[in-house]
Simulated scan of single mutants.
Amino acid sequence: MAGHSQFKNIMHRKGAQDAKRAKVFTKVQREILVAAREGLPDPAMNPRLRAAIQAARAVNMPKDNVERTIKKATGGGDGDDYSEIRYEGYGPSGVAVIVEALTDNRNRTAAEIRSTFSKHGGSLGETNSVSFMFNRVGEIVYPASVAGPDAVFEAALEAGAENVESTDESHAVTCAVDDFSAVRDALEARFGDPESAGLVWRALNGVAVDEEAAATLLKLLDALDDNDDVQRVSANFEIADDVMARLTA
């Protein structure tokens, strides 16, 4: 299992639990709130808001919740004021970790993230201490059922994408950050709304992690993801499938 996933992939390891679902709703609502405040409240004219609404649909957030959050963002009141912050550090075995957060209290979040790293065999570093080990790319994910790998590859190529990774479950299309909006729009016109679409961190190279270190690393990633302020967690680990199966059994 590679570690270039967003927080939703970490969720899949833990299973769909009610408490986890509530946390994900909180994270998605925050993203909708920030997206609606920084641009127009119309998703057709606000790419970030459109992506946030798609994320809400992916986790089955009720439509009323989405609409209330947008109204709250554009209501003109003081409300919550969230800042976007990126934290970078190292986990067990020197695995590079990037944590993206939306917080209304920078000091609180920094202290919590630092403590989480320390408790799980890691250390929080300075900004840009590990991001050079990743590429920032646009990623659009469709279920495998939308079309065959060849059709998706051809459509992605025509749209200006750089790569397509197809599995039995999904097609993950990646592109340059500057091309993201154009590629996403072209694919939506061809295949409809994707499962997810946004900017992600892709590791340039993976770090092999043995079973003992992997157990601690997964606890670190899960603990980071459990923080309400954390939106996405990316890491450059590689864990063998048989080891992952034992650890998640």
Rank of each mutant, 00 (worst) to 15 (best):
G94K: 06
N105I: 07
A58F: 08
G76I: 03
K8F: 14
M45C: 10
P62C: 06
D81Q: 15
V207K: 03
E212I: 13
A147Y: 03
A52P: 13
I85P: 07
F237E: 01
G121W: 03
M244P: 01
I32Y: 09
A186I: 08
N227E: 12
S145K: 07
T167E: 00
R57L: 08
V97S: 04
V164D: 00
D210H: 04
A240C: 02
D150V: 12
A35R: 07
G125I: 06
E112K: 14
S234I: 03
H4C: 05
I140M: 00
L224C: 09
D18W: 15
E154W: 10
E169M: 05
T167H: 00
D64S: 14
E154S: 13
Q29L: 12
S5F: 09
A35V: 12
N128T: 08
A215I: 03
G79H: 11
P92I: 11
G15V: 03
D64N: 13
R13A: 08
A44F: 10
E158C: 10
V34S: 03
E112T: 12
I140P: 00
G148T: 05
M244L: 13
R190H: 04
A151P: 06
L218H: 04
A214S: 06
A235R: 02
G89Q: 11
V200Q: 02
D179C: 13
N65L: 11
V66L: 04
A44I: 07
A19Q: 14
